[in-house]
């Protein structure tokens, strides 16, 4: 009996590639912020390692054997897929075990999954990244790609907010961007809700950076990622500035068990966040985001 599966949008090969867990080794662990670490990984199988590619914004299912598997965005540079990084905050069952990982430890990865940031959609215009807290991790690969392809955009603007300096991810890198990359046309502005004496940047929520970024709504494409409440505020202000909903992209989180549209956990209305997202266009999900407990 041959099966009719014409309704599927994703190719068979793509899906099957993500079904089997692959073993990876932790190479380096770097503390980024409070309870948050970046794990640099290499896939053990050399064939898999060389073939592995990901797009900015995509996730892997990150597995700790015997404990569980969770969705985590890739936080490293998509131009160097053999050096793979995940930046993870310890919040619960699985992530607390991840916190204990040391170089040489083995984990599993399945992926990459999901719809990426459409970096090329911003070409010819301005790319504005608005990230809050841990939301910078999924956004970073998009920023790397924009930096590498700087000539394709008029302006590249990176706005990052965090609760406090100790919650700001990739601090050294951000300092370097703020100080040096502006000469290469990357405008970086940072802010924290509550600053201390050592903090040289702005104070206030991330939307307070909008005036400084002098956003031109006619040519700007926005990628925003962070806590849902932060994204709501950011979107409200951006729409207020005249940025059309179809040029605002955001990253959505839902519980995930499979990554390939068959466990049902990640549903958001008609969407499967694992396959139709996690990156959505605001005009696709704005209404759904307004429905409580969907």
């Amino acid at each position: 009996m041959s099966l009719d599966v014409s309704a599927s949008a994703v190719s068979e090969a793509e899906i099957l590639a993500g079904v089997a867990p692959r073993v990876a080794t932790v190479r380096r662990v770097v503390q980024e912020a409070y309870e948050t670490y970046t794990y640099w990984l290499t896939l053990d199988d050399p064939v898999v390692r060389r073939a592995y590619r990901f797009e900015p914004g995509q996730i892997n299912m990150f597995g700790v054997v015997g404990v569980g598997e969770i969705p985590i965005s890739v936080s490293s540079d998509p131009a160097r897929p053999m050096r793979l990084a995940h930046t993870i905050r310890a919040t619960g069952r699985v992530t607390n075990v991840i916190k204990g990982l040391r170089p040489g430890d083995r984990v599993t990865l399945r992926g990459p999954f999901g719809r990426p940031w459409p970096v090329s959609a911003a070409r010819g215009g301005n790319l504005l990244v608005v990230a809050g807290g841990l939301g910078l991790a999924p956004a970073r690969p998009a920023i790397y790609r924009a930096i590498r392809d700087r000539g394709a955009f008029r302006r590249v603007i990176v706005l990052v907010g965090a609760r406090g300096p100790e919650h700001m991810l990739f601090r050294h890198e951000l300092d370097a961007w703020a100080q040096w990359l502006r000469f290469r046309g990357i405008e970086t502005h940072l802010t924290v809700d509550i600053a201390d004496d050592t903090w040289p940047y702005g104070e206030g929520v991330v939307t307070t950076l909008f005036p400084r970024a002098s956003i031109d709504p006619r040519v700007t494409t926005v990628f925003t990622c962070g806590p849902e409440i932060m994204m709501r505020f950011a979107v409200r202000d951006l729409l207020g500035l005249g940025v059309p909903a179809r040029r605002i992209w955001l990253s959505i989180e839902r519980n995930m068990h499979c990554g390939v549209k068959l466990c049902g956990h990640c549903q958001l209305g008609p969407y499967f966040v694992c396959a139709d997202g996690p990156i959505f266009r605001y005009d696709e999900i704005g209404e759904l985001m307004g429905v409580a407990e969907l």
């Binding site: 015997g66 598997e69 068990h257 049902g264």
Partner: peptide, 26 residues
């Protein structure tokens, strides 16, 4: 209805693990 959970279990000595899928519900 197709929803399912993926559940991991591990032996006490931490050397053997099993990943099981089971019916789940919204």
């Amino acid at each position: 209805c197709f929803c399912n959970d993926v559940v991991d279990g591990i032996s006490l000595d931490g050397t053997e693990a099993t990943r099981t899928r089971e019916w789940a519900s919204c």
